[in-house]
Design a protein around this nucleic acid. Structure first.
Length: 737
DNA sequence: CTCCGAATAGTTTTT
DNA sequence: CTATTCGGAG
């Protein structure tokens, strides 16, 4: 029996169909990674394809790493020469080799969002664009969208001649590209765009890579944008062995330019494409899968498919509503502790998913108090922290002499008495003589307007020059240590002695660890290489399965992952779906949110809990939200509303001290609005099937409980008065034993 | 030039 | 609520 016999018929077909274009529509949890890895193994072992000729593109470095690991396990040897990487790292690798053809240096810098913003700020000042009217962020996102669609500055301008504000953006776009080139830098989007440009401008380079990558596979294909599609189709246009895997129901990156047309129109572009659907889900219980199916069914623009599973029915989907976000977080923390204590699961089996990063704070707080180990994914990127960016800017300055942005960042860190006016004078001189900022610094004594300030610049230049001369025989980590030493960066922080400063020192230590481990993992470690790795790291990449801790992350980050126990928190209209999408007049936006919800639900293997809060602090203001409309889309019979009886059961269990304390601290909300008071204090002490007593109608049996906006609508079949519907807060029903 | 406090604007989602 | 920006004093 071969390893391919363990696959189901559709999976097997996808693995064996190696020649020509293939579109695999893989539902959530249908084993697509398994198909991809087996397909690679099959190509190598059965088809005799050289591993060197195989390319697999994933969405994150983490996914790439896992894929390689799994291929390693089933392929005896040669797996290390397969290209398994993300779009961005693939492109960087190609550009590092050939970007001189486009007039850049090989050691170009990659600009992150912060860098982009400061560059754009400069440009706006220079072009006299009022940032009150055109915000830097908005301009940058317009540019980014243009790049996603492979629209050049010139084309953008031509397309928007009549629109005044877009003409401004066109101007900024042009200038922005010019600045990037001057700084020998590329932004994220450029990595793809420039590679496509390279392929189009240099047929020999394209041909080289076409020959090299005869078999190409793309994961998470539904999230590719136009530029990425172009990149892949150029590469595949010679041998046409392109296999893409995706699920239109999991397309959640439209805001970032993902073009769903890439997946829906694949058969049109590649007319002889083989289409295979994977519809058996191996991940979730029936109840979870059915909930997901029902929710996604409300979307109109989708390829109909029916996901099914052989798995057991499993427990119901839990739904809990709370007064506020504190109680929500408290419940989840308590629920997880209980499960762990009762040995149902380990911390690492649990994940909390939410819509926005800001929601993580409360969970962190509660988890700290409850002594639950957790790992936060996302939020402020490690490499975006000030101290890290400062030190990296030093390294960038050393690495790429033309990166003005990096030089300007560090010229006065630590304080050297060089201020804005001095910088402006140097900049003027640089522009006048058409040289880089740093080159102008080197000639500081020749700049007449500077006066005394020139003396302050000199030591800085000497310092950088000495660092540069060391690159020959110093490793990156030695260089970093040197920088820390010479600038006294850590020393200064130590002197501060605050908690915050200590945290920064810790971060710097972590950076040192990272650079050392980079050197250990790579045969030929270079400064450029390290900076590149750092620039392309995603939050999720740093997550490993080693630690036994609860994972906290956004729904977006959770794509492609699975957990036995999943909590979807903040299920409220206005949070999820977000306020923006509810008020937008484009129903497609709501559909994207629904797909996000689908992604969230299908992350769960065994157990899913949905929670929401009636009031929540957002930006210092209290908001009152209705339960998410997505909740209502799950059939009632699949949901456990877990009233009284279950909640009491939870409370009976002795709580650890920390939990008691935290209960105490958050027991009393500062302010409870009147309309909720009734419901909060009363709760519902009865469930469907219970016998209750009404002050006027007498005794009856509860037939149904329906959740309304701020109250429960209860249907009771009374012995004497017949069936009545009433609101729980007014009816004052009492349970009869 | 630097430091500090006050004012102000802002939040989806990310490679 | 919080991160960033701005303005004025030293």
């Amino acid at each position: 029996m071969s390893i391919y016999d363990t696959l189901n018929p559709q999976q097997k077909e996808a693995v064996l169909h190696t020649e020509g274009p293939v579109l695999i529509l893989a539902g959530a949890g249908s084993g697509k990674t398994r198909v991809l890895t087996h397909r690679i193994a099959y190509l190598i072992e059965e088809k005799g394809v050289n591993p060197w000729n195989i390319m697999a593109i994933t969405f994150t470095n983490k996914a790439a790493g896992e894929m390689r690991e799994r291929v390693d396990k089933i392929v005896g040897f040669g797996s290390e020469s397969i290209w398994v990487s993300t779009f961005h790292s693939s492109c960087v690798r190609i550009l590092r080799r050939y970007i001189d053809r486009l007039g850049f240096d090989h050691n170009f810098t990659i600009y992150d969002t912060d860098d982009q913003k400061s560059l754009m700020k400069d440009i706006c000042k220079r072009l006299q664009i009022d940032t009150k009217v055109h915000k830097e962020r908005a301009i940058l996102s317009a540019i980014s969208s243009a790049k996603d669609e492979l629209v050049t500055p010139e084309e953008y301008e031509l397309n928007n001649m009549s629109d005044f504000s877009k003409k401004k953006i066109a101007q900024a776009y042009k200038e922005y590209q010019k600045e990037l080139r001057k700084n020998n830098a590329l932004d994220f989007d450029d990595l793809i765009v420039k590679t496509v440009e390279l392929f189009q401008a240099c047929p020999d380079v394209l041909d080289y890579y076409q020959e090299r990558f005869r078999y190409i596979m793309v994961d998470e294909y539904q999230d590719t944008n136009t530029a990425q599609f172009k990149f892949v189709s150029l590469l595949a246009s010679k041998y046409k062995n392109l296999c893409v895997v995706g699920d239109d129901d999991q397309s959640i990156y439209k805001f970032r330019g993902a073009n769903i047309g890439n997946i829906l129109g694949f058969e049109k572009v590649f007319s002889d494409a083989k289409v295979i659907k994977l519809e058996q889900n191996y991940r979730s219980t029936q109840n979870i899968l059915n909930s997901a199916n029902e929710v996604i069914h409300n979307n109109i623009g989708r390829k109909e498919k029916s996901l099914w599973t052989d798995n057991e029915e499993g427990s119901l989907v839990h739904y809990r509503q709370f007064m506020n976000a504190y109680e929500e977080a408290e419940f989840i923390a308590g629920d997880i502790s209980r499960k762990v204590r009762e040995a149902d699961c380990q911390y690492k089996d649990c994940a909390i998913l939410y819509r926005t990063n800001a929601q993580s704070r409360l969970f962190e707080e509660k988890f700290l108090m409850a002594n639950i180990p957790y790992k936060l994914v996302g939020g402020v990127n490690f490499y975006a922290r000030k101290e890290i960016k400062d030190l990296l800017a030093y390294l960038k300055t050393v690495d790429n002499a033309r990166d003005d942005l990096a030089v300007r960042r560090i010229i006065n860190v630590p304080k050297r008495g060089i201020g804005a006016t001095t910088l402006a004078k140097v900049q003027d001189y640089a522009s006048e003589h058409d040289m880089s900022f740093y080159d102008a610094l080197k000639e500081a004594e020749n700049i007449p307007t500077l006066g005394r300030a020139a003396a302050k610049i000199e030591p800085f230049v000497t310092f950088v020059q000495s660092l540069r001369s060391k690159t020959e025989y110093f490793s990156p980590s030695e260089l970093l240590n040197d920088i820390i030493e010479e600038t006294g960066y850590v020393m200064e922080l130590k002197a501060e002695g605050t908690e915050e400063a200590d945290a920064r020192i810790e971060n710097i230590d972590e950076l040192i660890t990272k650079i050392v481990s980079y050197e250990e993992e790579n045969e030929d470690p270079t400064l450029s290489g390290f900076l590149e790795e750092v620039a392309l790291i995603a939050d999720i990449d740093t997550v490993d399965g080693d630690g036994n801790q609860v994972l906290l992350m956004t729904l977006h980050s959770a794509k492609g992952l699975e957990f036995p126990y999943v909590y979807l928190a903040g299920m409220e209209d206005g949070i999820f779906p977000s306020y923006m999408t509810i008020t937008a007049d484009d129903p497609a936006e709501l559909e994207e949110e629904r797909r996000l919800c689908y992604v969230g639900i299908t992350r769960a293997m065994k157990d899913l809990t949905l929670t929401c809060a009636q009031q929540r602090m957002i930006r210092g203001e209290t908001q009152y939200n209705k339960p998410s409309r997505f909740i209502r889309e799950i059939p009632r019979e699949l949901v456990d509303l877990g009233r009284d009886f279950k909640e009491q059961k939870i409370k009976e269990i002795p709580l650890p001290n920390t939990m008691k304390q935290m209960k105490q601290a958050f027991k009393q909300p500062a302010f409870i609005p009147k309309q909720f008071e009734v419901k909060k204090s009363a709760g519902l002490s009865y469930n469907v099937g219970d016998t209750v007593k009404h002050i006027k109608f007498g005794v009856g049996v509860v037939k149904n409980i329906v959740e309304g906006g701020r109250d429960y609508e209860v249907t009771v079949d009374f012995d004497k008065s017949g069936t009545k519907k009433m609101f729980a807060s007014f009816a004052k029903l009492k349970k009869v034993e």
